[in-house]
Structure formats: C-alpha cells, structure tokens
Amino acid sequence: MEGSEGKESEPTSGDLCPHLGSTAADMSQQISAENCYEILTKAKSEGAEGVKEQVYGYMSAHYLQVLRTPGVYGRLTAGERELILARRMEGRKVLAVAETCEGHDRGGSRENSRPQSPLLQGPEDTVHRRVFCLHQDTQRWEVLTSLPEEVSAKGSGMCTLYNYLFVAGGVRAHGDGRSKASDRVFCYNPLTGVWSQVRPLTQPRCQLRLVSMDGYLYAIGGECLFTVERYEPRTDRWSQVAPLPKGSFAVAHEATSCGGELFVSGGSLFYRLLRYDSRRDEWEECPFNESRRRSTDMVAHRSLVYRFDVDRERAGVNVYKYNTVVKVWHGGASFPLENPLPFRCAVLGDRIYCVNRSQTLQFEVQEEREGFLPEVLPSPVEARGALMPFVLSLTRD
C-alpha cells in the first residue's frame, strides 16, 4: 500500500495544538486529524484567517478521516460540513480509467452465452493495474496512479464517492493455486495520492456492481449472490439491505443510481429492470425494455437511465433510455461501428463517455438534442485488460 489515509505526518501527543504564529508552510505540516478541530477553534478565537483556511483545506483533503472522527466532524457546523465537502469536489474534473479484468465477455458475440466465471480463469498478471486520466485540452492520457498489489483488478467493483475511488471485492489467487472471491475494500484519495483500506464487505464477492448513492456505497450481487449490502462512510460499516429477487440475474448485470434510487438490469434476463427504494428497503419490477440483447453498460443523467447495447450483427451501438419520472422506455440514438467491442460508460457534465481499449465514444445529452458526436477520442495507447471509467476532481494546476 502507498500509505494510510491521513497518517503521513502525525504529531506527537504533546503537540496537538501547535502555536498559531508558525509560518503557513510549518502549519500545514503540523495539522492532523487529531488536532485539526483544536487548531480551528483557536484560529477562530484569534482571528487567524490564514490558519483557519489551512485547516479547512486539510479537512477537505482528508475528508473520510475527518468524517469518521466524531470529535471533529460531529462538532463542525452544518455550514462547515458543506464547505469542506464542496471544496473537495472542486478542481479540475477529469475522465479516468482503471485497467481491470472483468472475467467475462461483456456484450460478446455469443449473446445468450453464460458468462465465464473469473474463479476458473488464470492469474491477472496480464493486467498492468494502472489508472489513467484524460486531459481535455490535449486529449492525452496520463498515468495518475496504480492499483496496489493488495487490490484485486479482476472481478472487482469500482465507483467514486466524495471524490474517492473505491474498489471492492474481486478475485485473489491463493497459495494453493486456486482463486477465491475477496471481501476487501480499498479507496484512493486523488488529493493526497494515498491508497487506504476500509472495512471489508460482510461477505466475499466477485463480479459485483459497486454504486454510490446519497452518501452510501452499495455492493450489488456478484457471482452466485443475490445479496446487497450498504456502506456508511461515517461509521465505516457495511450492513445488509434487501436482496435482489431470487432468479432475477446471473452475473454480468449493470447497475446505476438515479434520483435517489438504484436501478439494476442485464444479467441472464436482458430486458428486465429492477428499482430499489432505499426508504422502503424494497426492490420492484420496472417496465420491460424492448431490447433482448445483453447491454454493455447503463448510466444515469438527470432523471434518465441510459442503456447502451452493442449490436454486432448490425455493426453498431444502440441506446435506450428510461424516464424514471414517467416510468417509460424510449428508443434512442444509434452509432455505426465496424466490429463493435464492449465498453463501459462514465458521465462527465452533459456527455457520456463510452470507453474501451480501442476508442472512446462521446454521447452528448442536451435538452434540445442528444446523440453521439462524430469525434471519436483515443483511449490509452498502452492500456491492457478491460477499462473501467469514472470521474475524479483533481487539484487545479
């Protein structure tokens, strides 16, 4: 591991509230999760605005650690809580991708074939485990970080929450030559460059879907699993919620959140869509989609859920959208592609980026129009394995 969140330079017990006359550079090195609230209180009483801003900056950069510390987060005002989170989400938003190995042919040529279990496949030594980010101005991909060796790149679930990248579950090789599902969960902080481990899942999962919604993480299903569990960052705890209906899905399903609800589709019954209501802790069936193909991914934008299907027979990509307000499916745009390959999607602003190793499509969503842009962006030239896209906010240059 590259380090533990917020543990880079802890002060000694006798120096929990440094002298506020220190220089700005000195003070930034002395602030920690243990003393940040005391320094903030002293800075307020002495009118030390510069120090107060540095403390807010520390709290923003180490948000998860502050969130889990009752003596800090519990004593902040509502306005201060909003401030440090807003600062954390500021900065330069970038499209990022992680090299992974999903363990099955998503949207492959055999539409009705059963996905191959990653537990039966070989080691993940062909995956380089890097995370790339795209610079919009130059349209060049650069390496941002790498997944530590302890993090599984095969069959894991990934998503972002509070501008952290979380990686949960997956498959790990053991000394006896067999592979087993993992319960381990890690997160990456792009503001500090540090990877850390959080509370493990309540049960090992591979081929799960990891989705963030309303300040929680949801680990959905996985191979041979219908169970769903929810992670609360403030208590660093996973708890079981209502499972997926029995017989609904195999692995290879898609999941997204929209309007405070979870939506799950795909699997062995391609056209079905399930909705999870967190207030009632219940799943219910949504109207069927007309497509009978295995979707390659599903994402949400405003009140719409967009489903992307790869059609190898007609050499293209078809888009369907579900209006979560009026609960109706609509046919959408299509895009011709020779030998179309599966891809995964991420939403940045009013564009949905569809990424695989060969290219990145841009699907623009505007009130007056929506559809694929003619400009096809490159993907990381040296990337290996399947690419999992997501969006992070980096510090401004």
Rank of each mutant, 00 (worst) to 15 (best):
G6C: 03
E10K: 12
S13N: 04
S13I: 14
G14F: 10
L20S: 10
L20M: 14
I31L: 14
N35I: 08
I39P: 04
L40H: 02
E53M: 15
G57E: 12
Y58N: 06
M59R: 14
M59D: 03
S60Q: 08
A61W: 15
L64N: 11
Q65K: 09
Q65N: 15
G71T: 06
R75K: 15
G79T: 15
G79A: 09
E80H: 07
I84W: 04
I84T: 09
L85A: 01
A86H: 05
M89L: 07
E90A: 08
R92Y: 10
V97F: 00
E102H: 09
R106F: 08
G107M: 04
R110A: 05
R114V: 10
Q116F: 06
S117Q: 09
L119T: 11
D125T: 14
R129W: 11
F132M: 09
R140S: 10
W141T: 03
E142R: 14
V143R: 02
L147M: 02
E150S: 06
C159D: 03
C159R: 00
C159H: 01
N163V: 01
F166R: 00
V167A: 01
R172V: 11
S179Q: 13
A181R: 10
S182I: 08
R184C: 06
P190D: 12
T192H: 00
Q197L: 02
R199M: 07
P200C: 01
R205W: 05
C206F: 02
Q207L: 03
L208I: 02
R209G: 01
Y216P: 01
A219C: 14
G222F: 13
L225V: 12
L225K: 15
L225D: 10
F226I: 10
E229F: 12
Y231Q: 09
P233R: 14
R237L: 12
S239F: 13
S239P: 03
V241C: 07
P245W: 15
V251A: 12
E254K: 07
S257Q: 05
S257P: 01
S257L: 10
E261A: 05
E261Y: 05
F263C: 03
V264P: 07
G266D: 06
L269S: 08
L273K: 06
L274K: 13
R275K: 09
D277H: 13
S278R: 14
R280Q: 07
W283R: 12
P287N: 11
F288V: 05
F288I: 09
S291Y: 15
A300N: 13
A300C: 12
L304F: 11
R307H: 07
F308C: 02
D309C: 12
D309G: 06
V310N: 04
D311V: 07
R312E: 13
R314P: 06
V317S: 04
N318F: 15
N323L: 11
K327P: 03
V328G: 04
A333G: 03
L337G: 04
E338W: 05
L341G: 03
F343M: 02
V347R: 01
G349I: 06
R357K: 07
S358C: 14
S358K: 15
Q359K: 10
T360K: 08
E364N: 05
R369Y: 13
P374V: 13
E375G: 05
V376Q: 05
V376R: 01
L377D: 13
E382G: 04
A386H: 15
F390A: 03
T395L: 11
D397K: 11
